[in-house]
Computed example of a mutant assay.
Amino acid sequence: MRITILTVPNCPNVPLVRERITTALGGRTAQVELIEVRDEAEAARWGMTGSPTVLLDGTDPFAIAGAPESVSCRLYRDTDGRTDGAPSVQALRQALSGVSAPQAAAGQECCDADVLDLVGRAGRGRRAPAERGLRAVQQAVLRHFAATGHAPQTSVLEAAAAQADRTAAEVLAELDREDFLALDGAGRIRVAYPFSATRTRHRVRLNTGVEVWSMCAIDALGISAMLGQDVVIASSDPVDGRPVTVTCTGGTTVWEPAAAVVFVGRRDGVGPAATLCCDALNFFTSHASAEQWQQEHPEVRGQVVSQARAVEIGEETFGLLLCED
């Protein structure tokens, strides 16, 4: 068997995936090769949908249908729904034995596989790759939102884009194509996950006093971890408009009402998260209210998740976006 690890240069998860492959092999002999992929064209040629991608005899056993080729980070989800930078040893053993990665149990909603992968760009994460100025501009956009509550003008981003010998408009257009943010018809930023440039149901007050709008409930819950700040989220139940407040302080959350939950859903189709799922990820005052909303919206597939799971998803999705490495 030939095992190929496709990776961007200096990917921090390469040692982890190598170690897990060795463990999964359990002493069996296999040819393991490491190939560095440096641009989107190479990624397309190799079929790499994020770093690291593992191929077994040229086939990706963990491929997600519809995931585009990319040189960005790739995340893998285990059977408990947790994300990691490499397939688990169990998943690798199954793949090496010719068994596909585990799917959702019969009768289980497809939401975890579909919606959360869309929230995280089909398992590749919301953090833009460092190449071509993408991460520098993305982070400049997010920091401007956090400092002012508003989207930056393109001129504010020119210095970050110039580090890669590009214009801000060029980098923003690529970030838009890759669904790291979304532009309007005039090329202005209307979405930079987790932030919205326009009013939404979810208002987040930072401990600096700045107020921002978030795209959805999960985005709102990820802002505290992303900024390393205490925040207060003010939202409302879509069924009856009753308020839902989440106070994030020192890594803990207090929910009001105490029975509040989050519904995570998506519509069928192809497109960015802003179109397919952001308005289907909401806070509800109770499980019953979330179920009522789901029954009233049969076009949305999804499920109710607990407070702890919703916070975990938000942290996993947005916690590393402003890291420098």
Rank of each mutant, 00 (worst) to 15 (best):
R2L: 07
V262F: 01
L56E: 02
M48V: 03
E36M: 06
A217H: 06
L181W: 01
S70I: 06
S214P: 08
G302A: 03
A161T: 11
G265T: 04
Q90R: 15
G228S: 09
F283S: 06
A164F: 03
E256L: 14
F62I: 08
V171C: 07
G47H: 06
C11S: 12
A105K: 14
R201V: 04
V304E: 00
L142N: 06
F62D: 02
P87D: 05
V210F: 00
A136Y: 01
G250E: 03
V32I: 14
T7P: 02
E69D: 07
R309E: 11
L175F: 00
E312R: 15
T249E: 08
P194Y: 01
R38H: 14
A225C: 09
D60C: 08
A91N: 14
L25Q: 02
A220P: 08
V115G: 02
S72R: 14
A186H: 12
R77L: 09
V14Y: 00
N13S: 15
I64M: 11
I3L: 10
V231M: 02
S224L: 03
T253K: 14
P272N: 07
L181P: 05
G50L: 05
V191N: 06
L321W: 00
A290P: 05
R301V: 11
L92G: 07
A274C: 13
A44I: 08
L34I: 08
L16Q: 13
C278P: 00
A164S: 13
I3M: 03
R190Q: 12
V71I: 15
V264D: 01
G123H: 05
R199V: 13
L320W: 04
S70R: 11
A259G: 11
A274V: 03
S51L: 04
S100W: 00
W255H: 11
L206D: 00
L96I: 03
S88K: 12
D219H: 06
D325Y: 11
R267Q: 14
A91F: 10
A63R: 14
T167N: 06
V37I: 15
D117K: 09
G58Y: 01
A274N: 07
L118T: 09
R205Q: 12
D279K: 10
V261A: 04
G222Y: 01
E174V: 15
V32S: 00
G81Q: 12
L321K: 09
I223V: 15
D57I: 10
H287Q: 10
G209P: 04
H287L: 12
A260I: 08
